[in-house]
Design a protein around this nucleic acid. Structure first.
Ligand SMILES: [Mn+2]
Ligand SMILES: [Mn+2]
Ligand SMILES: [Mn+2]
Ligand SMILES: [Mn+2]
Lengths: 212, 212
DNA sequence: CAACAATATTAGGTATACCTAAATAAATTT
DNA sequence: AAATTTATTTAGGTATACCTAATATTGTTG
């Protein structure tokens, strides 16, 4: 009876799952928001009735209206993460979890001031754009689109704690280089050290060609 | 169905009313928190059952335990106000209202980091101490304790929007000088301009002798 | 001191976001 | 195709913080 998610949390989670993996499903939402499946099912009905999401088969998508709602939500989330890193001394890999209350507690007007006073960042600590409607104009690929090799990490879309920790431990933050190779249904990534992640997560991190 | 107060809000409001006026009552709490009288009555029963408050006649006080709870709550509130002024460009007289969500959304550990990164303030923008258990060792008086005349404003405990605005408009912020005289049941205060406030509020602002 | 005003409480009800247990539907395996 | 596993929904219920209308209590004052 402690954490209660609100509409913004549902939209944020759905947006992120779609951006990372193409669509969202109820299991993913349930595990990201730490609520039971019936709770998700029920909540999605509300979002559907409000024309925020649409389901095809069992895949969940945001409507155009839903995307319009998502833009400022993602922006507030990502500015909050920059704030957490710069003003609360939170390590970048923990910043996603650290802001889950803050992001709802400041309005857009004040978030703009905060962003300015933080030096006008345009990416969150994980490399994701603060303005999702701005096309960053970068040639980004997800791991399943490119051959094994060496790349620069552009961003990590699905900001899951354990995943982020692995990157942090290997000193691979956005902007840094990594090498990867496939091992069956897994992907082995190395920076300062090596770690393995399931192929399912491949869509979540985006790479650019490394010119170094 | 938008704003919902939680236990911290009730404790903060009760603490403030007691500090400003000696005790709290249900009407004061109701108007400060914008909730109906039955809601207050009901909530106070819970706080009493939890040994946080105690009623004598109709006057409400915090227990020792309640005061222990109030200390970090007031601290978070007041650090939030400094943050609002410095990082969100909020005018000092509006900062109290601006932080009503923020103050609940950051834990003590991170509030300490924030405070440090804000330059270790020890007062909120209204002059009130961030650490309420530290005795500021200042000879402070409320208006009903001193003769008419010229004083330095030390702090404004009851941070009510209209009240703060009057001080701001007259350019009297904590640390600045004011002159006052009595006019029946009102008090007339002047800084850059003159305004009148009901005697009831006298306890809320504290003065020190001005040496200028 | 009765009358009126101010303050507080009771009674009965709402919305939101949760939950467990059980049922159903869809996708994978044997 | 039947059996099993995975994903989703239904049914029925909880806690928290609110509300209005009505009633009771206390304080003030003519
Ligand atoms: Mn994040
Ligand atoms: Mn991020
Ligand atoms: Mn305040
Ligand atoms: Mn203050």
């Amino acid at each position: 009876m402690d954490f209660r998610n609100n509409e913004e949390d549902y939209i944020k989670t759905i947006y992120t799952l779609i951006e990372a993996f193409g669509s969202a499903n109820e299991i993913g939402i349930s595990s990201d928001l730490n609520v039971s499946m019936p709770t998700v099912s029920e909540y999605l009905n509300k979002l559907e009735a409000k024309n925020i999401i649409k389901k095809f088969n069992r895949k969940i998508y945001l409507t155009t209206y839903g995307l319009d709602l998502a833009a400022p939500i993602m922006s507030r989330h990502r500015i909050s993460e920059v704030f957490a890193v710069k003003m609360l001394d939170v390590p970048w890999e923990e910043s996603h979890d650290a802001v889950m209350d803050i992001e709802h507690s400041i309005d857009d007007l004040h978030f703009n001031k905060l962003r300015k006073n933080l030096g006008n960042p345009d990416r969150c600590p994980h490399g994701n754009p603060i303005n999702i409607k701005e096309n960053p104009n970068i040639m980004e690929f997800s791991i399943n689109q490119v051959p094994e090799g060496r790349y620069k990490l552009s961003r990590i879309i699905y900001e899951e704690n354990n995943l982020l920790k692995k990157f942090a431990d290997a000193s691979i933050l956005p902007g840094q280089n990594l090498t990867f190779y496939r091992d069956g249904r897994s992907i082995v990534i190395s920076g300062n050290n090596e770690f393995k992640i399931p192929e399912k997560l491949a869509g979540s991190f985006r790479l650019v060609t490394s010119y170094e």
